[in-house]
């Protein structure tokens, strides 16, 4: 189809561009719900909160609870464990953080039980600091859940939690 080649854009060019633009917006509007439906849905997002009764947890014991699909360690720390955690100089830590910043009450340490390396669940009362040791690649955490040796880059994560009473805590 030969038409006089216009230097200015023709009406047809404008129509093509306008149609294409509207079509692109329409295509995006169609695609977005189909992609978004795979995102976590309302029932998953509903901040899963759990309340835990701390009464039965003896001193020195680590309780593991399930929160948002994964483990959370609740450790009733002994005086020795607390002292070792507090006395550690920050210069020794790969991810420096004071123990006070990690535990609202010193005798209760609450951390997410997922190794910050590649996601395995560390084993309690293990490793030279008697904290945790991850069996997958040998990361070693202390009694404050901080990384001391091994390939993990960060300390065990501390979730949002709140003490409802002295013996009842709400996580998440």
């Amino acid at each position: 189809m030969s038409q006089a080649h216009a230097i200015e854009p023709s009406r047809r060019d404008f129509l093509y561009l306008a149609t294409g633009a509207v079509g692109a917006v329409g295509a995006a509007a169609v695609v977005w719900p189909l992609v978004d439906q795979m995102n976590p849905d309302a029932s998953t997002l509903a901040l899963a909160s759990i309340e835990v009764d701390l009464g039965p947890v003896a001193e020195g014991q680590i309780l593991t609870v399930k929160w948002r699909g994964g483990p959370v360690f609740i450790r009733h720390r002994t005086a020795k464990e607390i002292k070792e955690a507090v006395d550690t100089p920050l210069s020794e830590l790969k991810d420096p953080q004071t123990d006070a910043a990690r535990a609202q009450k010193p005798e209760w340490l609450i951390v997410v039980g997922v190794c910050t390396h590649l996601g395995c669940v560390p084993l309690g009362h293990d490793g030279q600091y008697d904290g945790w040791k991850c069996p997958c690649h040998g990361s070693i955490y202390d009694t404050s859940g901080r990384i001391r040796q091994g390939p993990a880059p960060l300390n065990l994560a501390v979730p949002d939690y709140k003490f409802l009473t002295d013996t009842r805590v709400k996580i998440g």
Binding site: Q37, M38, D41, A42, T44
Partner: peptide, 30 residues
């Protein structure tokens, strides 16, 4: 996309459809 959220068991099917309608993002639309 519906099949990603539907459960085909007699005990769960009805509820999974309501879950799609209420919880899944744009589930009602799909």
């Amino acid at each position: 996309t519906l099949a990603m959220h539907y459960t085909a068991s007699a005990a769960q099917a009805f509820n999974s459809v309501e879950h799609i309608m209420r919880d899944v993002n744009f589930g009602w639309l799909i």
